[in-house]
Write a protein that binds this DNA or RNA. Structure first.
Lengths: 111, 111
DNA sequence: CTCCTTCATCGACAGTCATCTATATGGCAC
DNA sequence: GTGCCATATAGATGACTGTCGATGAAGGAG
């Protein structure tokens, strides 16, 4: 008889914690949003104008706006308006949190 | 006149690199797969039987099989068959790679 | 061999997502 | 005020995804 379904040590991830990780990874699970993050990180924390994204990404302006909104709602970006222009910057503490969450030792426990 | 669209330093993420990050995050962007990873990491690298997942996750067996397949295709899991049973274990090097990829300094450059 | 168990695959279906065009909002110039 | 420009929002649409039930494949028990 093969030993199977033996109990595991440690407390399992709660539904809420799993859902939170899902939300976070969903935001990152798109090449356009990855590129946006890359542009912002290359700016070393400085604010970047929306026109910069519409220039570099080959997408219609509303599509870019849509992705920026998702990133902002996830708490990864801050927006700042100057006149009709909008500037975005990355939130360093959010990136730090992301980095710490994917630590194997952390994923083995609750969030 | 507001300064806008000023050039950025550094090389931008290539399409392929962005697509690779997208693929990786897509696999993680599901609460069931997050829970599977959590179970495997709590097992401290030991192999875990499929029945363990079907027990703990409240899902039909084909659904669990589907998620395990995605995780395996992403290189995050290894499978080992013993008789009719299948055991999965996490690939530590894949988790390490994941952790290093979400480093802000890394995301600011190419992968 | 036959039956049962475990797991993987298939096909269908509902829900979600990324994208577009069209439109609205709101500031600046004149 | 009017007109223009940058951005956000709304609605539509095609593609993808997670889920299930049904079925297939393969090994162990009797």
């Amino acid at each position: 008889m093969i030993a199977c379904c033996t109990p595991l040590a440690g407390s399992s991830l709660s539904d809420e914690d799993a859902a939170e990780l899902e939300r976070l990874f969903k935001v990152l699970a798109d090449r356009t949003r990855v590129k946006i993050l890359n542009i912002l990180l290359r700016a070393r924390g400085q604010a970047v104008c929306v026109c910069e994204f519409t220039d570099q990404l080959d997408l219609a302006q509303p599509t870019v706006s849509y992705h920026l909104k998702l990133l902002r709602e996830a708490g990864l970006l801050d927006r700042e308006k100057r006149g009709t222009f909008a500037y975005f910057r990355v939130r360093p503490e959010a990136m730090e949190r992301l980095h710490s969450l994917v630590e194997p030792a952390v994923l083995a426990e609750a969030v």
